[in-house]
């Protein structure tokens, strides 16, 4: 055996090892993020219970729920489109999570590669996947839920994207880490949220975020008392467990995205703290508000937050 093949074999081995380490890092990172997301959902359960003057479940209740759901047997066989939709819906927010600055917590640096256009594409993969799965289910409530979810998506994406465009116009870049670097980490005066005229864009996008998280008053697509939990109606057992994990992952991804654009989230620690603060604000509104009718919600979203965000965008560009 000559020296060249030995070197070649060694470099191939190193490459394989590198790929293995990268895969492990990604796995650890995603599991960690989903675990934090489930913890957020536990806070939600406890918080809304306290608002209603109840004791509420323990804060680790979502972990118990996920263990129980993943250990269930499925009663009915589904077709392959249902499985594909569920996997797609779970995969979308996981890929989105890789482009947040949180990934430097395990030494990855995908977040320096993410730009706005990629993120906006990835952000709709999750909801579309679950819409696909729900629409092949036989239940009519599922179809109604999908219709509502897609029209709501149209509703909240507009103010959210207008708000983000104002930030892009201000900073002159669509790279996420550059937008984050243009703000200060801890000083609120250095955040886009508290700068004139970007504060208008931020408020518009923040109302859009409430719809994106599907918290009340923009909770039409699940609406358990009205359309039998809507898009989730055919999900049971392990599928529902997957949906809970997807919900946890997309909480982190969506709140993290907002934190990057408006609160200057740069390092893992401050991103997680800002995600917590944003989530507490969202569930405070959720705890005391009712639910709009779908048509009302659509009109509300396209009227007030859109006008405010558009005003912010115009003032940023022309003033």
């Amino acid at each position: 055996m000559n020296t060249a093949t030995v070197a070649g074999a060694a470099s191939a081995g190193a490459k394989f090892l590198g790929a293995l380490v990268l895969t492990l890092k990604v796995l650890v990172y995603l599991i960690l993020m989903v675990a934090i997301g489930l913890f957020l959902m536990g806070i939600y359960r406890k918080f809304s219970a306290r608002v209603q003057y109840r004791v509420g479940p323990p804060i680790w209740q979502p972990y118990i729920d996920v263990i129980k759901l993943l250990s269930k047997k499925d009663a009915a066989t589904k077709n392959w489109v249902f499985d594909l939709g569920a996997v797609m819906g779970f995969g979308g927010p996981l890929i989105l999570l890789l482009f947040l600055p949180l990934d430097s917590i395990v030494g990855l640096n995908f977040h320096t590669k993410g730009d706005l256009i990629l993120i906006l594409y990835l952000a709709v993969v999750g909801p579309l996947g679950f819409a696909l799965a729900a629409s092949v289910g036989a239940s009519p409530w599922g179809a109604i839920g999908v219709g509502r979810a897609l029209s709501m998506m149209l509703g909240y994406e507009l103010p959210f994207i207008l708000g983000i465009l104002a930030v892009v116009a201000k900073d002159g870049t669509i790279m996420l880490h550059k937008v984050a670097a243009a703000q200060s980490i801890w000083n609120p005066a250095g955040w886009h949220y508290f700068q004139w005229p970007l504060i208008l864009a931020a408020i518009g996008a923040h109302i859009g975020l409430q719809g994106m998280l599907s918290e009340k008053p923009f909770e039409q697509s699940v609406a358990p008392h009205e359309i039998g939990s809507g898009i989730m109606v055919e999900f049971g057992g392990r599928y529902l467990g997957m949906m809970l994990l997807m919900k946890a992952a997309s909480l982190m991804a969506e709140l993290g995205l907002f934190a990057i654009f408006f609160l200057g989230a740069t390092t893992p620690l401050d991103t997680i703290i800002k995600i917590f603060i944003l989530y507490i604000i969202a569930i405070s509104f959720d705890a005391v508000l009712g639910r709009f009718r779908p048509d009302q919600a659509f009109v509300v979203l396209w009227k007030w937050p859109t006008i405010i965000a558009l005003l912010g965008l115009l003032l940023t560009v022309f003033a």
């Binding site: 219970a49 479940p57 323990p58 009663a75 008392h225 939990s229 989730m232 109606v233 055919e234 049971g236």
Partner: peptide, 21 residues
Amino acid sequence: TSRFDMERFGIMPMATPRQAD
């Protein structure tokens, strides 16, 4: 509701048979 609060034990009402135990 708040008098007995069954959610203390993780018990919740569900909307469909597929999600229920």
